[in-house]
Amino acid sequence: MSALYPKINDVLYIQLDTGDEKEAKIVYKSRISDMDDESMYMEVPLQEGTGRLKKLFIGDELSAYFLSEGGVKNYFNSYVLSHHEDIIRLVRIKKPDPDQITKVQRRSFLRVQAELEVAVIAKDGTQFLTKTDDVGGGGVSFHLKPGQSISEGSLLTCWVLIPYKNGAVEHVPFEGEVVRVKQLPTNRSIVMLKFNHIVDMERQKLIRYCFERQFDFRNR
């Protein structure tokens, strides 16, 4: 079913999932230079209209589409695997599975269900340890115990403990804003947090964990 894939020299239209609303609306153009079983190699993307080159970092998530016959948009989500110096600089991105190429755009970060330990410090000094419900490149959600309360719009300082498959463990610090508090029937609630300050390198650690997990789910 390789007809589903773009061809060499096809143009890719790309939007980045950086968690920044303004950035997420910008469309970049690139061209596919090469492809193998695992990856697509594309030129460094240019911003439409301005011609500004967009520097991509390893682990950056993108939502891309290419046009097939009749101008049909074919969307897929991917992420940056590495950089390559050929005659020109190329960016190697993950080649999607054929069934992940759709006619509908799926924005938003990858989210995976995960029970990770997270330490939370509120502005009033309240501190507690809890477990996440899910994590992603744009935020996390975590459980509140009965009797604990956090209001929407609060800013929290947190760090989450991330265990990788190879046995390494990372502490990822971030600051997040409470977007929503969802009440569960069990008298507990889940706090949904979006990052409003996280160092890029720390975000990559989270995204790497998400891709490892997603891979596990897929291979079950």
Rank of each mutant, 00 (worst) to 15 (best):
M1C: 08
L4G: 11
Y5Q: 03
K7Q: 14
K7P: 05
I8D: 06
N9A: 12
L12N: 07
Y13S: 11
D17Y: 02
T18K: 13
G19R: 02
K22S: 08
E23W: 05
A24D: 03
K25V: 13
K25A: 15
K25Q: 12
K25S: 13
I26Q: 04
S30R: 00
R31T: 14
M35P: 02
D37R: 05
Y41G: 08
M42F: 04
M42I: 15
V44R: 07
L46N: 00
L46K: 01
Q47A: 15
Q47H: 07
Q47K: 13
K55N: 10
F57T: 09
G59K: 04
S63L: 11
S63G: 10
S63V: 11
S63D: 08
S63K: 07
F66P: 04
F66M: 06
L67V: 05
L67R: 00
G70Y: 00
G70R: 01
V72M: 06
K73E: 05
Y75M: 09
Y75W: 09
F76T: 03
F76L: 08
N77G: 06
N77E: 06
S78K: 01
S78G: 14
S78V: 05
V80E: 02
V80Q: 00
S82V: 12
H84Q: 15
E85R: 08
E85D: 15
I87S: 09
I87W: 06
I88D: 01
I88P: 00
I88A: 05
V91H: 01
V91W: 01
R92V: 07
R92L: 06
K94S: 11
K95L: 14
Q100P: 04
R106M: 12
R106A: 15
R106H: 10
S108P: 02
L110S: 04
V112Y: 02
A114Y: 02
E115G: 09
E117I: 05
E117W: 06
V118W: 00
V120C: 03
G125Y: 03
G125K: 01
T126C: 12
T126N: 04
K131R: 09
D133Y: 13
D134V: 11
S141L: 07
F142S: 08
F142K: 06
H143R: 10
L144M: 09
L144V: 12
K145A: 15
S151R: 12
G153I: 10
S154H: 08
S154A: 13
L155W: 00
W159I: 15
V160F: 09
V160E: 07
N166P: 09
H171Q: 15
H171N: 11
E175I: 14
E177R: 09
V178T: 13
R180E: 02
R180G: 06
K182P: 00
K182S: 12
Q183P: 06
Q183H: 12
P185H: 05
R188W: 07
R188G: 13
V191S: 04
V191W: 02
M192N: 15
K194R: 01
N196F: 03
N196G: 03
N196D: 10
I198Y: 00
I198K: 03
V199E: 14
V199S: 13
E202K: 08
R203D: 03
R203K: 14
K205E: 07
K205T: 11
K205H: 09
R208F: 11
Y209G: 05
Y209F: 15
C210H: 01
C210A: 10
R213H: 07
D216W: 00
N219T: 11
N219K: 02
